[in-house]
Simulated assay, not measured.
Amino acid sequence: MAFSQLQDFIYKSLMHGIIKIAHARGKKIFSSDDAVQRTPKDRVEQLASKITTLVENYSSPNLVRAPSEQAKLEEDASDIIDEIVLLEKDTQVLLEEIGMLRVLASLGLTIGEFTHETRHVLSALSAGILSLKMSSPAAEGFKTLQGNIESLQAYMRYFDKAVTQNSQRSLSVHEIRDLLSDFEQVVSSSLQRQRVNLKIEVKGYDLFVQSSHKPEWASIFFNLFTNSLKAINRAQVAGSILIVAGEVDESRLYLEFIDNGDGISDANKEKVFDAFYTTSTPADALADDEVHITGSGLGLKIIKDIIEDGGGDIYLSVPPEGFSTCVRIEFPRASDEEIPDDLR
Score class of each variant (00 low, 15 high):
Arg119Cys: 02
Ala35Leu: 13
Glu321Asp: 15
Glu184Gln: 14
Val318Thr: 07
Pro320Gly: 10
Asp289Phe: 12
Leu130Pro: 04
Lys304Arg: 15
Pro340Ala: 11
Asn62Glu: 15
Leu255Gln: 04
Glu256Thr: 08
Arg43Ser: 10
Glu69Pro: 01
Asp160Glu: 12
Leu198Tyr: 07
Gly297Tyr: 00
Glu184Trp: 07
Pro67Tyr: 12
Lys89Asp: 10
Ile19Gln: 09
Val237Tyr: 01
Ile10Arg: 04
Thr53Leu: 15
Arg157Val: 02
Gly128Asp: 08
Ala2Ile: 10
Asn148Gln: 15
Leu87Met: 12
Ile80Ala: 03
Arg252Trp: 09
Asn233Lys: 14
Asn223Leu: 07
Ser136Ile: 03
Leu54Thr: 09
Lys301Leu: 08
Asp249Pro: 09
Val209Gly: 01
Leu242Thr: 01
Gln92Leu: 06
Arg344Lys: 11
Gly112Phe: 02
Ser240Gly: 06
Asp341Gly: 05
Arg25Val: 07
Ala138Leu: 11
Tyr58Ser: 13
Leu207Ser: 04
Gln92His: 07
Ser49Asn: 15
Lys230Ala: 12
Ile200Glu: 05
Phe323Glu: 05
Ala138Arg: 10
Lys133Tyr: 14
Asn227Cys: 09
Thr325Ile: 08
Val196Ala: 04
Ser31Ile: 05
Val318Leu: 03
Ala35His: 10
His174Leu: 07
Asn227Tyr: 10
Ala245Arg: 06
Leu198Pro: 09
Val44Gln: 09
Val36Ile: 08
Val186Ile: 05
Ser4Gly: 04
Arg344Gln: 05
Arg157Trp: 04
Ile176Glu: 02
Glu74Tyr: 10
Asp288Lys: 05
Glu97Cys: 12
Pro215Ile: 00
Ser123Cys: 06
Lys143Ala: 09
